[in-house]
Nucleic acid binder design. Structure first.
Lengths: 145, 145
DNA sequence: GTCAATGTATCGCGTTACGATACAAATGCC
DNA sequence: GGCATTTGTATCGTAACGCGATACATTGAC
């Protein structure tokens, strides 16, 4: 992979390194593209799907606070607020009082959100299995996998 | 993973399935977030970096046509046109005549684009090695990896 | 030479994430 | 218990970006 160890000043990348990075990026873009077209075909935006998935996929519970979602979705707090607003008008999620902290808000799925997420997640699971090994190969940045 | 085989009508996903999908998505978001902050810190947008990388990472050559880029970046043709326009004003890429097809355009890196890409790609390579196994584990959708 | 197919470019638009800002509740300190 | 600091959520204006619709040039088939 043309790397020494883990120093700050790296030696130049080889053509193969660039190709591997590009392949990896392409794999991600392709998956996200599949996801986008799939979810839009079901009437929701990619952001909505990610929101629903983050809620249902939260370890141990089925809801999350705005701050937690900001971390999971890697967005700013107020971007999540807006996203939740939008999803709420679509009847995909709802807000509820936090049991112990009156500042926080519990964001949780509506039955409709649950239904949509179920359908979409199944399609994503299938696609991931389809990509499966191909995706894993992308992770070998020296192109030898 | 709670799957039968590969039929169209899937059985419902388990909590673990949802968690795995959410983890996978989180991993992607995290990587893209790292990428965005890194490249912006060097004065380019994420789209610019992806464009440069697609050019330099093209197997066998160091340039690509607009159509090829549209496929690699998973964008519409005209979105790529606009992206190339923007990158061109930043002196990151340039257009050149296609040798055999007068309709096509060769998009290639400028020396400046080459420099920027080299620096940024090294950082991405390092980050990927850092995430390395963690990312691979995300790919096991049943959470057992 | 005509015509469909291909490749690139332009324009206007809607969405979305952001920074700046504001407000409410909780926490720590004395 | 009062008060400052921190934490959590929300609002507003803005800029970037990808897209659909559209236009134009070149190629290739016949």
């Amino acid at each position: 992979m043309a790397v020494r160890s883990d120093q700050g000043k790296p030696e130049p990348l080889t053509k193969l390194d660039f190709e591997a990075l590009a392949r990896f990026r392409f794999g991600i873009r392709r998956y996200l593209r599949f996801s986008e077209e799939t979810v839009r075909g079901h009437g929701v935006t990619p952001q909505h799907y990610q929101l629903l998935l983050a809620l249902k996929g939260f370890p141990g519970r089925e809801w999350a606070t705005v701050s937690e979602l900001a971390e999971l979705l890697q967005l700013r707090h107020h971007s999540v607020v807006e996203l939740v607003n939008r999803a709420q008008t679509q009847d995909l999620v709802e807000r509820a009082a936090h049991p112990t902290d009156a500042r926080s808000v519990r964001v949780l799925l509506t039955p409709e959100g649950e239904r949509v997420l179920g359908r979409l997640s199944a399609l994503h699971r299938d696609e991931l299995r389809r990509m499966g090994d191909g995706f894993a190969a992308l992770l070998a940045p020296d192109g030898t996998a």
